[in-house]
Amino acid sequence: MHNRLQTAKSIDEVIQHHEFFLDKCLRGCLLLLPEFLKKVERLKSLCLQYAAATQWLISSSIDVPSLVESDGSLVSEKPRQSKSRRPYQPLKLSSSNKTVADSILKFEREFNAELQSLGPILNSSSKAEPYMTHLSKCILGIGNEQ
């Protein structure tokens, strides 16, 4: 765009070069494909759901000592040695390992299905935009013989 602007002879040519540049940017960022943007948004949503579930799982499995005594008073930073105080009890997970594994596999299946559905969208658009062919092949796993 910079080189083209240097040779522009009128404001109309500047506007034309700028519009061409903006169009090229929109195409390069895949912002002119509403179907593609919906799929990417769905992938993002799945990733955020997975991250939230993972965060919950980690936080529920970490041993957190109780900061409140049985009488309702806060425990000081250096806990007192008291015979009446119950020994520290780690938190238990409310779900079994199988349930956790099933949840992870469900996220994986949904993510892979959404990712695979991007391939045909990109493939059909690659006829108009050849640079999308490479992205389509990467998503579909074509040509990954490395």
Rank of each mutant, 00 (worst) to 15 (best):
P90I: 05
L31S: 04
H18T: 15
L43R: 00
K78L: 14
M132R: 13
L33A: 03
S124Q: 13
L48K: 07
Q49L: 09
G143S: 04
L37A: 09
D71S: 05
A53Y: 02
G72H: 04
F36D: 02
I139W: 06
P90Y: 00
K78H: 15
I11P: 03
L26F: 14
L5P: 03
S117A: 15
T133I: 09
T99E: 11
K78Y: 15
S82Q: 09
C25D: 07
L30E: 05
E19W: 04
L74P: 15
A128G: 03
K98Q: 03
L32R: 07
D12S: 13
V64K: 09
I142P: 07
K83G: 00
N123E: 15
Q55N: 09
P120W: 02
L26N: 10
R109C: 02
Q81Y: 11
K39N: 14
L122M: 13
L33P: 00
Q116W: 02
I139V: 15
Q49F: 08
N123W: 12
P130M: 02
F20H: 14
L140F: 11
L48G: 08
F21N: 06
Q146K: 09
I121P: 08
F107P: 01
Q116P: 05
C25G: 04
Q6W: 08
L91A: 12
A101N: 02
R85Q: 11
V100D: 00
L37R: 09
S45C: 10
S10W: 01
A113C: 12
P87N: 03
K38D: 11
E35N: 13
E145S: 07
R4I: 00
S61T: 13
R109G: 01
Q116L: 13
L74N: 13
Y131M: 12
I62G: 04
L140W: 09
L48I: 06
L105K: 01
Y131V: 07
S45M: 06
I15T: 08
L37G: 04
G143L: 01
P34S: 05
Q55P: 00
L140I: 09
S126R: 03
A52G: 08
D63F: 09
N144V: 06
S95G: 04
C29H: 09
P90F: 01
E13S: 08
L46Q: 02
R109Y: 01
S60M: 07
R85W: 10
W56I: 00
Q55I: 03
H18I: 06
S66N: 12
Q116I: 02
I62K: 10
N112D: 14
L26D: 10
L43D: 00
P87Y: 01
R4E: 10
D71T: 04
S126L: 03
L32D: 15
D12Y: 07
S117D: 15
E108P: 01
I62M: 13
V100L: 05
L37M: 10
R86D: 11
F107H: 05
T54L: 10
S95Y: 09
H134N: 08
I104F: 01
L118C: 15
S61K: 10
K9H: 05
E110L: 03
R27V: 12
W56H: 06
L115T: 10
I104R: 03
T7N: 10
L33T: 05
Q16K: 13
